[in-house]
Design a protein around this nucleic acid. Structure first.
Length: 793
DNA sequence: GCATGAAAAATACCC
DNA sequence: ACGGGTATTTTTCATGCG
């Protein structure tokens, strides 16, 4: 019979020495199904040296089969492409997927064999690639129903009688989604899984059901058991949380072991386990940690659950309960405070569900586009997402997948940035080339498979030669990147008009918009991937040529703009800022289309814009009255809010009223308030990322010393964590005065540091442009305050 | 021994 | 664990003074 199903998860099992692919899905009857494919061969390729006879090599492998390669079941000669060149290969089929890495290595040493390829492609990945499956997409497969004697939690179990095939059907079945959040308790310091219990687990389903499992007498055995029972009972397709891959799951795993509870939350009667890219795998369900998608939200600087939820406008109807981690213990211990902790935890699980509602579509579209299962795609770094996408595309055109190899890093020249004309400018248009690098690669056929090394003769069809660097790329046939990027751009162009016809609140709109975003992310990252030394398809000249053409294009555009009579006040990479003269702009864009072959169009219009001397920093007033602030302290996460708020206000006064004196007065007032400690404590916190383990730092930096204090108190910190600190009074170096904000208090804060090193520099950056020296920003001693309220902390 | 300034380390931004 | 270009702060180191 034919079965239609939506792809949720995939895993590989070895049953009695025979590999099985298990695909977990949901069918069009809303049944949860497991489809088992027992008939998919593992394989890798041998690439032959030029002029070798494939049959000879097949004979050699066969003769050594009994001793060395017992798992080989078939050897098949053929041809593939490798970096655009046709090569002779032998496809080596093996009974067990686990041997291919080992066999590949051994067989590569045989005389006449150049190398082995694709022996580093995992079995389940292989299955997705070869069958062109789309995670989070619909498929059709010929199946036979089988009795469920595998003890898996599904409605139906099927054996695949054909390979699944992706079908056009859109939409997502009615999924059961479970959000959860946990709270652990330790009397002092950060909770440690080996001794401190999980006293509270809050769950929330997408049907709106809310539950809390609360420990009695700080014993978490029943909490764990109830949680496991609830999960099994609710049987979610997606289990989601925030920070669960790094925090909750590992913690729960240790607690469960400690308490002798089996954490059987999956559909196959096994416990959660670590999988590739540092994600926790829960067989048969998708474990999605939205912290892994928080990079997408560049505006959110400190990626806490609260900040992300607030940014997305989740939980807007109510005031949030805020409890610092350090206060969990007192809240748990105090019967009066405990209800607040329970409320806090419940709000957390609701925030997670809210975030899921906002971001799950994107996660699914990305998963479906790049071919990584939903639970993997979040933890995979950008480079691996693209690579996964490219591996699928390569298979379709018979291009072999290069091995991952370590290479030295050699820098190359990137884009041009022109010095801005400092000061205020009125009515400025930003013209930019849309998707410049992808379009360059398409136009000049720039790709790993079309690159012609210096030593190679020029191909018949001719070459495109990059300016400056002189790298050559075959004009024909259409390159790998060209095909891939063109189809991405086309698919996005097809989505956009559809969006205009839909209600932005409809689910159809949300899905399409998410698709469009996923496509954009992948398209834009292709250039960066090309220049990444870790890439399988790394070819430095590809990235180097793209930027060389980019420089050439933007510089000739700047030139043309000037000739047309436009004044260019700034330019960065693919954009030029000019006076908003519609006719001249039209001329220019017409000229660019004809002479360069790329489209340059007005994007943003600024009623007024301010540049300082610095590149990559400016602030503009938009037609609707909003400010667009770029690069300045206001948009940086590593400045205290007090400095950012003041700078923003200064910019607003300058851009809207052109009143530097008023702005100066504002700063003076603010500083007077700050010196009286009337500015909120949280506005003094400076957040910085811990980019490596504390021990590896070569210098004593404030945030590193603050991190050290946290570690001494038993808090856990790892790479990528943000450290929030304040500067306290005292003598010596700055790093000696930096303290984690929740281990000190306002009365110890050195407000003069914030005046001198935060507020004044941030304000001065702008006001210097209007000849206002720093000392004019400092209030006189007897300055009267406009406001007079009691200090708050 | 110490002030001074340049260099290095570190971070976060822009596109 | 996608690129290079850029600004900025703080620490660290080298230098020269007397």
């Amino acid at each position: 019979m034919k079965k239609l199903f939506w792809f949720l998860d995939i895993n590989y099992e070895a049953k009695k020495g025979k590999p099985e692919i298990w695909i977990w899905g949901i069918d069009d009857q809303d049944d949860r199904v497991l489809i088992v494919d027992r008939d998919f061969p593992a394989y890798f390729y041998l690439v032959l040296k030029e002029g070798q006879n494939p049959q000879k090599l097949i004979d050699v492998v066969n003769s050594r089969k009994a001793a060395e390669f017992p798992s080989v079941v078939k050897l098949e000669p053929g041809q593939r492409r490798y970096f655009g060149k046709t090569v002779d290969v032998v496809k080596v089929y093996c009974r067990e997927p686990d041997v291919i890495a080992k066999y590949g290595k051994a067989v590569a040493k045989i005389e006449g064999v150049k190398e082995s390829l694709e022996d580093d492609v995992r079995y389940a990945v292989r299955y997705i690639i070869d069958n062109n499956l789309s995670p989070c997409g619909w498929h059709e497969v010929e199946v036979e129903e089988e009795k469920n004697d595998l003890d898996v939690q599904v409605d139906k179990l099927y054996i695949a009688k054909s390979r699944p095939k992706s079908v056009e059907k859109t939409g997502v079945p009615k999924l059961r989604i479970l959000a959860f959040s946990t709270i652990a308790y330790s009397p002092k310091g950060a909770p440690k899984a080996d001794k401190n219990p999980v006293v509270l687990i809050s769950v929330r389903s997408n049907a709106g059901e809310e539950r809390q499992f609360v420990a009695k007498n700080s014993d978490d055995k029943s909490v764990l058991e109830s949680f496991v029972n609830y999960v099994r009972d609710f049987d979610p397709d997606i289990i989601t949380g925030y920070g669960t891959n790094r925090q909750d799951w590992p913690y729960l795993t240790v607690r469960a072991k400690k308490q002798g509870v089996k954490l059987l939350v999956d559909r196959a009667d096994t416990e959660p386990h670590m999988s590739v890219y540092g994600h926790v795998s829960i067989t048969g369900r998708a474990n999605v940690d939205f912290f892994d998608f928080s990079d997408e939200l560049q505006e959110v600087k400190v990626k806490t659950l609260e900040n992300v939820a607030d940014f997305l406008g989740v939980m807007k109807s109510e005031k949030r309960t805020q409890i610092e981690e350090i206060e969990f213990s007192t809240h748990w211990e105090d019967p009066k405070k405990r209800p607040t902790l329970l409320r806090f935890s419940s709000e957390n699980s609701r925030s997670v569900m809210g975030i899921a509602e906002e971001m799950l579509d994107f996660a699914m579209q990305l998963s479906s586009l790049v071919g990584l299962p939903l639970d993997h795609v979040g933890t995979a770094a950008v480079g691996f997402r693209i690579e996964s996408f490219l591996m699928r595309e390569a298979y379709k055109i018979g291009e072999l997948i290069p091995k991952r190899v370590e290479r030295p890093y050699i820098p190359y020249v990137g884009a041009v940035v022109l010095a801005p004309k400092p000061g205020l400018h009125e009515n400025i248009a930003v013209l930019d080339f849309k998707a410049m690098y992808p379009n360059i690669m398409i136009m000049y056929n720039v790709s790993p498979d079309t690159y012609v090394p210096q030593s190679d003769p020029e191909p018949k069809a001719g070459v495109n030669i990059a300016p400056e660097v002189k790298h050559r790329f075959r004009k024909e046939p259409p390159s790998f990147y060209k095909e891939v990027l063109s189809s991405l751009i086309t698919s996005r162009d097809q989505i956009r008009p559809k969006l205009n016809r839909l209600d932005p609140k409809s689910s159809e709109y949300k899905v399409l918009d998410a698709r469009q975003k996923a496509v954009k992310v992948i398209t834009n990252a292709a250039y960066g991937y090309a220049g990444w030394t870790g890439a399988r398809w790394y070819v430095k000249p590809v990235a180097e040529a793209a930027t060389a053409w980019g420089r050439h294009i933007i510089l000739s555009t700047v030139d043309a703009a000037k000739k047309t009579g436009l004044e260019v006040v700034y330019s960065d990479t693919d954009s030029i800022f000019v006076n908003n003269d519609a006719e001249k702009i039209n001329n220019l864009s017409e000229k660019a289309r004809k002479e360069i072959g790329l489209e340059i169009k007005p994007d943003t219009i600024y009623k007024r814009i301010l540049f300082t001397e610095a590149k990559k920093k400016y602030a503009g007033l938009l037609p609707d009255g909003r400010l667009d602030i770029v690069g300045l302290e206001v948009v940086r996460g590593d400045w205290a809010s007090c400095a950012k708020n003041v700078q923003e206000k200064v910019l607003e006064i300058i851009l809207k009223k052109k009143a530097p004196d008023e702005a100066t007065e504002y700063v003076r007032q603010y500083i007077a308030e700050l010196r009286r400690k009337r500015i909120a404590y949280k506005d003094l916190i400076i957040w910085k990322t811990l980019a490596k383990p504390v021990e590896e730092y070569e210098v004593k930096a404030p945030h590193v010393e603050a991190a050290r204090l946290l570690l001494n108190e038993g808090w856990e910190l790892s790479m990528g964590d943000k450290v929030g600190y304040v500067i306290t009074v005292g003598s010596g170096k700055l790093y000696e005065k930096a303290k984690p904000y929740f281990l000190t208090s306002y009365d110890k804060v050195d407000v003069e540091y914030y005046v001198t090193n935060q507020v004044v520099p941030a304000a001065s950056r702008i006001l210097t442009m209007f000849n206002i020296p720093e000392d004019r920003l400092l209030p006189s001693k007897d300055m009267k305050l406009l406001t007079d309220f009691r200090p708050k902390d």
